[in-house]
Design a protein around this nucleic acid. Structure first.
Lengths: 339, 339
DNA sequence: CTGAAAGCGCTAACAT
DNA sequence: ATGTTAGCGCTTTCAG
């Protein structure tokens, strides 16, 4: 079963012109006589010609492909990643943006040294022109490796260590402030936080913003239980919080999944949400509207951010490098039932 | 910024051998003197050589890449797809399987004629060696188009129209039976179904299996409200069901998201789940354990199925075609709180 | 505006 | 066991 199709040569012969001319027509280059253009197009149709990607790629040095990398650690990483609707949103935003530019995304997980090596090799081999990277780990070595390999790349979220690299991010500090202000405004007096893993810049910023607002309102320190972005992690954190601070009447969770886990525990303990304890989530993921009470949450415009990543990378691939670009989006508080 | 690296030629010169020998070492072909192998490897290291993918691809006629196609219709298709954890599971299963074989998945959505054309072109261009297709639409034209282009492919789920193509599927009929038997066994007397879109074979089979079991138990016809696999669709269907059959005490929903939507409505109407109305879902997706009551559901081994798709395709790419293969997996009832 | 010709970097016969 | 050679299918100067 050989899927080898007709080549430029075949089309050229059919049309009675040279390969170069066919190539020009295929690539939409002007300076081709309209009559001949027609001739060629007809020949293309009649032969059923499609350009060969590898051959083209070999000379243009472009694969019209980028790697979409999800980077983090742990067993069953791939399986866990998509349990959070967050990643699906990134993927769909990126894919949608790239497809408009006829760039194709190759999805890869980089959760071990072996996987990272595979990823870097893939890029060095020229199979992809650049990379879109989503790290869920603070000390992720991947961006550095890619930078060392001179791979054009754009990160989702500012790296934990400063790096000369483009990224798209959100103003998490502001997000944390919005959450705190809302909780304060609805009269909560005993706040608590279910935080992100301690070393993630985004998590730190959300917490810092939350504290900012508290400080400004003359409030003291706030108890924090660390979560892991999962439903169960949120539930566990809420349980701990309740043991040590039974009087808590307002909770800010660093993502919606954890907020949902927290709500579950609160209700199992006989507390009404939001009457007894209000809960604010983060992300505005699909679960925010699917649960009862629906979640009041800080919306991240993830799809837009992912699309921006794609654009930034596309620009970088096209023009000469203008140095790292940083795009920071604004969060938005979405008020629903939980707070 | 030219990322052009050293070539085979450079390595050959450095090692004082021919390009062919270097190529043999790189590709792990025996019949190379161990001493020379060492020499070459050293030269590879010292030059920092990585093979060029396009050049290799041009002669081997293999891209070591497959397209992972999600096919369906509608606006914002890409965005909606990942709202259901189901797709994330497929993707992660497929990626995990393929990576072991050094095959890279390109993710594409095919929801319009333009998108489908782009997809077929991509394959015809040789940029991918084959396709893994997940259709969420009964009359999806994509498989046929791919078949016509002689693209090796494997479908997730049997196509609505018989097609000479390999696929991986589950015994949905059996899944429906499991759900019915469980509901019957727990003493439900007034059953109802929240079905899948009517034209999906999987949905039809689940319903048929459900009816099978009912018939065998001497039960008559069962009311069915059609859903669209979303949380809200499930809620809407449940609402309709309740209006026409207020006495319903057992519901089978064609996926977990709809089951969750149904539970929401039931509780809003003051009914206890499962005491007043039991609910059985389908898929055993991540939402099944995240909600209260947790869902009793029919588990689909999605990751395994997706991995099997990858294997089937890999085999097809490797060996000579042995005709379409069909792999059918068994469902499993997972009993939790909702029924 | 069109054609001829030179590669892009690699693999795979075929010789040796 | 190694080297020589001929392409894979395309783009792109460079002439004309």
């Amino acid at each position: 079963m050989d899927r080898r199709g007709p080549t430029l040569e075949d089309v050229a012969r059919e049309a009675g012109v040279s390969r170069a001319t066919v190539s020009r027509v295929v690539n939409g280059i002007r300076n081709v006589d309209p009559g001949i253009q027609d001739l060629v197009r007809r020949a293309i149709r009649s032969t059923g010609y499609t350009p060969n990607g590898a051959a083209r790629s070999l000379v243009t040095r472009r694969a019209e492909t980028v790697a979409l990398l999800v980077s983090g650690a742990g067993d069953a990483f791939a399986a866990r990643v998509f349990a959070d609707p967050f990643f699906g949103r990134i993927v769909s935003g990126a894919v949608t943006c790239l497809r408009g530019r006829a760039i194709h995304p190759v999805l890869m997980f980089a959760e071990s040294d072996a996987a990272r090596t595979q990823v870097v090799d893939y890029l060095r081999r020229g199979s992809a022109d650049g990379a879109l990277v989503v790290s869920v780990q603070a000390d992720d070595p991947l961006p550095r490796m890619l930078l060392a390999a001179r791979v054009p790349l754009v990160l989702f979220a500012r790296p934990a260590q400063p790096l000369p690299v483009s990224y798209v991010d959100m103003d998490h500090r502001r997000g944390g402030r919005l959450a705190a202000e809302h909780l304060l405004a609805r009269g909560c007096r005993h706040l608590a936080v279910i935080g992100a893993p301690r070393d993630l810049p985004a998590g730190r910023d959300r917490l810092a913003g939350f504290r900012d607002a508290l400080g400004r309102a003359g409030r003291g320190p706030v108890p924090v239980a660390e979560g892991d972005f999962t439903h169960d992690g949120g539930a566990a954190a809420m349980t701990r919080l309740l043991e040590e601070h039974p009087g808590v009447d307002g909770v800010f969770a660093a993502n919606d999944l954890m907020a949902q886990g927290a709500c579950r525990i609160l209700r199992e303990r006989g507390r009404r949400v939001p009457e007894d304890t209000a809960v604010v989530g983060f992300d505005d993921s699909t679960v925010a509207t699917a649960c009862r009470p629906s979640l009041t949450t800080v919306r991240q415009p993830v799809e837009k951010m992912a699309a921006a990543m794609g654009e930034l990378l596309a620009d970088q691939l096209k023009g000469p490098p203008h140095g790292p670009a940083h795009l920071v989006f604004e969060p938005e508080l979405v008020v629903r039932e939980s707070a």
